[in-house]
Amino acid sequence: MEMIEHAIRENSLVGAFAFVGLIMWISVHLSRKLTFGRVHGSAIAIVIGLALAYWGGIQTGGSKGLADLKLFAGIGLMGGAMMRDFAIVATAFEVQVDEAKKAGLVGVMALLLGTIIPFIVGASVAWSMGYTDAVAMTTIGAGAVTYIVGPVTGAAIGASSDLMALAIATGLIKAIMVMVFTPVAARFMGLDNPRSAMVFGGLAGTVSGVSAGLAATDRRLVPYGALVATFHTGLGCLMGPSVLFLATKAIVG
């Protein structure tokens, strides 16, 4: 047993390939046997991944879920930003240029709404819960955009680290909810063509939420949603500390 552990630790990325393969295999079987294909195998795999991340976080007290366990360090590399973005870019190979062009304008509109709506919700909730100063409202509102926009905005306008942690938690919950509930709400949202995927990418925000949510709904829609969603964080970081902060300040003083 120790020898096996040693082998996996020395070859962490290879170990991650084998482990994720196992999760996928189990998920596809659960999908077929338990739900008769109604719940997509990848959706089950993502939920298993999140559950393992929770377990890993409890075990180690770290911030990287399962990847903080030495045996699963390869998961950190395989699912890290580098590999994630590399695989997302690769999916662009399947994009039909005409489809993407047709939805360009509506995608930009969705991006703007996807920044402003979560911000207003986050800032209002913060205000109603007693965070009535502009810095706190802006930081939490920005956290509701994505968990990167939150701390970036907070840092720019001088928020405390408690507030930034709250903003990150808000963004994380949002990303996890998008991952889990997108396949459930796909029909309600009309998520069945490239245009709708681009609208979704702009409004749902966070690359991780959008990419996992679409992967669990229909693999072929991923590139269209991701194409728009990758601009989400940049736009949020641009608007958060500037326009949105100033607007909040003007309203609450």
Binding site: G49, L50, G65, I75, G76, G79
Partner: peptide
């Protein structure tokens, strides 16, 4: 993406 989910906080 599954590996990414497994390392969320």
């Amino acid at each position: 993406v599954v590996a990414m989910a497994a390392q969320q906080n």
